[in-house]
């Protein structure tokens, strides 16, 4: 559990982080979203003490971070940054092994850990391992950066716009990787991003920042349903709010059994985990007003357009 208690950072008389109090549960992914210069990176860096708070405390699992030597603290916390910050004079493998080496692991342990991580992130250890950063593609470098951050099995991972420099396809892949890795390892993640869609897709909770303050801290559905301030609403983008909301909920929630009264809906059967947004998209594209959706426990269910539209507006 990460607790920030009235944390502030003042530069030249300006509070770039202003009295922030947050509690992040273990094993969750929290996204910090906000406009440029709102203090997201500063907030993140106060967790691993790359920036020392002007006032307030940070606690990890109940322990004050301020009393732990900064290097020791940081070795237990993974850290990923936008330009990946890989060390240009070290191979990918050596980069990934940075923290284990600093911690004095045995050489064989470091080596096997590096292999394990590279395989987990779908990097071929024998091909990518001996390469230098300038010989990697953007996506590969980014994954090496993530592997490096995870090397010493940190329980907390800080990510500062980790996908900022990636093209949309690689980006989606990287997001999926993160989701998978985070669920599998149970790591607590704080993810700083500009991109509200990314936050909605990945986060358990979203903290919206503006001018150093937290405007709203809530699960994605609540953020979409009840933006606390006009700023949050604006950040969401008024236009496709409903669609965003639909993209969060499984279509199965509004499915009814495929009753005979409905008549047989033809066309393809959507997979069971399809979201309401996907169901609606399918209807629009194929010109129907109902689609079938797979049900692992029996016959496919049926989703109607009326049901989706009703569900698209929070009560």
């Amino acid at each position: 559990m990460i607790e920030l208690r009235s944390v502030s950072k003042v530069y030249d008389g300006v509070a770039v982080v202003d009295d922030v109090t947050l509690t992040l549960e273990r094993g969750t992914l929290t996204a910090v979203v906000g406009t440029s210069g709102s203090g997201k990176s500063t907030l993140l860096r106060m967790v691993n003490r790359l920036v020392e708070p002007t006032s307030g405390q940070v606690l990890i699992d109940g322990a004050y971070t301020a009393v732990i030597a900064a290097p020791e603290l940081r070795r237990k916390i993974g850290y990923v940054i936008q330009d990946h910050g890989l060390f240009p004079h070290w191979t990918a493998a050596r980069n990934i092994g940075t923290v284990p080496v600093l911690l004095g692991w045995r050489r064989a342990d470091v080596r096997s850990r590096v292999r394990e991580l590279m395989e987990m992130l779908q990097l071929d250890p024998d091909v990518i391992g001996p390469r230098f950063p300038h010989e990697l593609s953007g996506g590969q470098a980014q994954r090496v950066g993530v592997a490096r951050a995870l090397a010493a099995r940190p329980e907390l991972l800080l990510m500062d716009e980790p996908f900022g420099a990636l093209d949309p396809v690689i980006r989606a892949q990287a997001q999926a990787d993160l989701h998978r890795v985070q669920r599998r390892l149970g790591t607590t993640v704080i993810l700083v991003t500009h991109d509200m869609a990314e936050a909605i897709r990945l986060a358990d909770r979203i903290a919206v920042m503006r001018a150093g303050r937290i405007e709203q801290f809530a699960p994605p559905a609540d953020i979409i349903a009840k933006p606390a301030t006009p700023f949050v609403a604006e950040l969401l983008g008024e236009g496709d709010r409903a669609f965003r909301y639909l993209s969060l909920k499984p279509a199965a929630d509004v499915a009814r059994p495929d009753g005979a009264a409905e008549g047989a809906a033809d066309g393809p059967v959507l997979p069971g985990h399809a979201t309401m947004a996907e169901a609606l998209s399918e209807m629009i594209w194929t010109g129907r007003d109902r689609v079938r959706i797979a049900n692992p426990d029996g016959d496919p269910g049926i989703v109607t357009r009326e049901a989706l539209i009703r569900a698209g507006r929070p009560e």
């Binding site: 940054i81 910050g85 240009p88 600093l102």
Partner: peptide, 26 residues
Amino acid sequence: PRAVMLAADGMGMTPRQRLWRVELPL
């Protein structure tokens, strides 16, 4: 590069380790 320095600090290198392992070789 700034990102490299930030990464070195973020990985938990002490100032001396950063100097010898990152800055001087670069």
